[in-house]
Amino acid sequence: MPGGRLSHQERRAIAAGLSDGLGYAEIARQLDRPTSTISREVARNGGGRGYRADHAHYATSSRARRGRRQTPQAPNDTDEYAERFAAVMVDGGIPRMAARVLARLYTAESRSLTAAQLVNALQVSPASISKAIGYLEQVGMLHREPDPRRRLQHYVMAEDVWQQAWKSSSRTNLNWAETAAEGAELFGPDSPAGRRLAQMADFFGALGDDMSGGPGFDILDDALTVLAAYREGGRVIEADRVAAVLGWPVDRVKTALELAAATRLTPEQRADLATAAE
C-alpha cells in the first residue's frame, strides 16, 4: 500500500522490472507506489545495475533494527532541567559540551558517571565527551577515578567545583592583564595601541585582584585554611586564636569566616562559625 514499508515481494518486483528495462515511474505504477519511493529504494541499495531484492530487504531490516536501538528516549523533566542548567553555564562562558557534561554530573543520582553513560545521556560521540572531560580536568572541575572491577574510568565532579571555576577565572583575568601590560610597554604609552592595551591591563588587573581578594591574597584559600584550622582538639576556637595560630590579622580571619559561612555547610559547621563570629 502507498506510504507503507516495501515488502520482500515488492522488492523482487522492483528487481524484475529493472531487469526488464522498465523505468522507475512504470515500476511505481505497477506497484501503486510513488516514483520517489522506488528511486530512493534503488539508490540506497546498489543502484539500477546493482540492485538485488534479497540483499535490499535484509539490509533495510538491519538498518531499521539499528535505528530502534539508537532512538533516544523522550526527554523528561530532569533532562530538560539539565539542558537549561547547561545553557546558563554556557552564557557564563563555559564551553557548551563541557557545560552539558557538568550539568549531567550535577543532576546524576550517583556521585560519578562513565563516558558511556554520558554518551548515552547526551546522544553525542565519545570524542565530544573526551574533549569536554579534558577541558573540565584542565580547569580542576572534575577528576577521574578507575573502576575497581572493570576497565572503566569514572568522572567525578570536584567538591569545590565552583571555587575552582572562580579561581580559574581569576587567573585568566590576571593573565590577560599581564599580557596587555606587556603590549602597552611594547607599543609605548603614547601610541593608540599602547593606550588601549594599558586600559585593558588596568581593567583586568583590577578585576582579577577583586576576584582573588586582592594582590597576593586569595580569599577562597583563606576560607578553606580557616575552616581547616578552626577546630583544635575537637573543640571550636575563637577567631583571634585562629589569627594567632596562622599569623594573620584578625580582620582577615573574620573575612574568611564570612565567606565560609556563605557556602554550603553542615548545621554543625554553621554553629561553629556563629560561635567564632561572636
Score class of each variant (00 low, 15 high):
132 A>K: 01
272 D>Q: 15
144 R>V: 11
222 D>S: 14
234 G>F: 05
86 A>P: 07
232 E>M: 12
93 G>H: 04
32 D>V: 06
144 R>H: 05
185 E>P: 05
212 S>T: 09
234 G>T: 08
196 R>T: 09
139 V>A: 08
224 L>M: 12
151 R>T: 11
103 A>T: 05
67 G>Y: 10
24 Y>L: 04
264 R>K: 12
204 F>E: 03
231 R>D: 02
167 K>E: 12
215 P>Y: 06
227 L>N: 11
184 A>T: 00
159 E>Y: 08
233 G>C: 02
5 R>Y: 13
224 L>E: 11
7 S>K: 02
35 T>K: 15
32 D>C: 11
8 H>T: 07
160 D>L: 11
272 D>R: 09
239 A>R: 01
192 P>C: 04
175 N>K: 12
51 Y>L: 03
175 N>P: 07
136 L>V: 00
60 T>N: 09
205 G>M: 02
235 R>G: 08
9 Q>H: 10
18 L>I: 02
78 T>K: 14
258 E>Q: 14
179 T>I: 11
141 M>P: 04
159 E>F: 08
109 E>K: 13
157 M>H: 00
139 V>R: 07
126 P>L: 01
27 I>D: 03
141 M>S: 12
179 T>H: 08
164 Q>V: 10
2 P>N: 06
207 L>I: 11
169 S>I: 11
192 P>V: 08
260 A>H: 01
275 T>W: 12
105 L>Q: 02
99 A>H: 00
141 M>A: 15
72 P>K: 06
130 S>F: 07
117 Q>W: 03
198 A>H: 05
36 S>N: 09
202 D>E: 13
36 S>K: 05
260 A>R: 03
109 E>P: 06
1 M>G: 14
56 A>C: 03
94 I>C: 06
130 S>M: 06
100 R>W: 04
110 S>K: 14
84 R>P: 07
82 A>I: 03
228 A>H: 15
71 T>H: 06
83 E>I: 11
